[in-house]
């Protein structure tokens, strides 16, 4: 089987802009505090091969607030530990009655592999370094609540872009809507070929230059273990790329400071930046729920 079930959300790259707009509009009508039983009787399987706090709980709450049943399957403590293949796990979950599978996996392309072999929708909750489409959608949703249009918006993404599925999805999404995207980071985290991802991408190694006149600054998490063995040392990274209040002030006065989480205060951003008025980090998490409600409702054909 190689047809992918309608409603699957595997990545932003191949999505039509209209489809994205539709989801964002639908999300505006979703309210987790006013439950509507749109998905009553539906079974949503949450299959997580990697640790996750916000994405997992956000999907779970989104599904439950529409009346769906959710079951969480973690790779540890399941047959996966015994060597069961991804596809066999997928067939098993389908056989127990899953109507939709949300999957997070350390390997790029794993959700697509599942979707190609299943007749139910698969939603990518993050696959390796590839994409994290629901994060990009909730970020777009968050931006849209503060900015009139994506077109011409000066967006800066700072940090470890190479390893970041959040960055790839955000770049695909924002560039589809005409945002002007600047990428900023050391060469190890931001190779020159990153500009091949979408048209019109710019690279700078200076965070000051990147921040100047920005409308949106997305700061990415930096994993300390990734800095090990690299030319750039942790202290240098902090000195050159950490988002500080001084650097943030270079941006437009109404600029948004975003971060997909989890944040490490004192590393990629300072304590003050995380909590400053421009920071929408907590709002992003909050917006994740209605956005994922919209994704699930649409995938299961219950969007109204």
């Amino acid at each position: 089987m190689n047809r992918i079930a309608r409603g699957s959300l595997l990545g932003i790259e191949h999505m039509e802009a209209a489809e994205i707009v539709g989801l964002l509009k639908l999300a505006r009508r979703m309210n987790p505090f006013k439950p509507r039983p749109l998905l009553r009787g539906k079974r949503v399987l949450l299959l997580f091969y990697e640790a996750s706090t916000r994405t997992r709980s956000s999907f779970e709450i989104a599904a439950k607030s529409m009346g769906a049943m959710t079951t969480l399957v973690l790779s540890s403590g399941s047959s996966i530990e015994k060597g069961e293949s991804l596809l066999d796990t997928a067939y098993t979950l389908r056989a127990v009655g899953a109507d939709l599978i949300v999957v997070r996996h350390p390997n790029a392309g794993a959700p697509l592999l599942m979707a190609k072999h299943l007749d139910i929708p698969v939603v990518n909750a993050g696959d390796g370094m590839h994409e994290h489409p629901t994060q990009a959608l909730l970020d777009a949703y968050t931006i849209s609540r503060h900015k009139k249009s994506f077109k011409g918006l000066q967006v800066v993404i700072v940090g470890d872009i190479y390893h970041s599925r959040v960055a790839r999805s955000a770049i695909h999404l924002l560039s589809k809507f005409g945002a002007r995207i600047t990428l900023c980071g050391p060469p190890e985290f931001l190779p020159e070929l990153a500009t091949s991802l979408a048209p019109g991408l710019h690279i700078t190694r200076s965070v000051e230059e990147a921040a100047r006149k920005a409308d949106v600054i997305i700061v990415l998490r930096v994993q300390k273990e990734r800095l090990a063995g690299m030319k750039i040392k942790l202290q240098d990274y902090i000195a050159r790329y950490q988002m500080t209040m001084t650097r943030l002030k270079l941006a437009k006065r109404d600029a948004l400071l975003m971060h997909p989480g989890p944040i490490i205060r004192g590393l990629e951003l300072t304590w003050e930046v995380a909590d400053c008025p421009q920071s929408v980090i907590v709002e992003e998490v909050r917006n994740g729920v209605p956005v994922r409600m919209a994704i699930l409702a649409k995938a299961l054909g219950r969007a109204r």
Partner: peptide, 11 residues
Amino acid sequence: DGPTAFRLGLR
């Protein structure tokens, strides 16, 4: 190594 690897998130 190249644009395809970068796009797919593969080393």
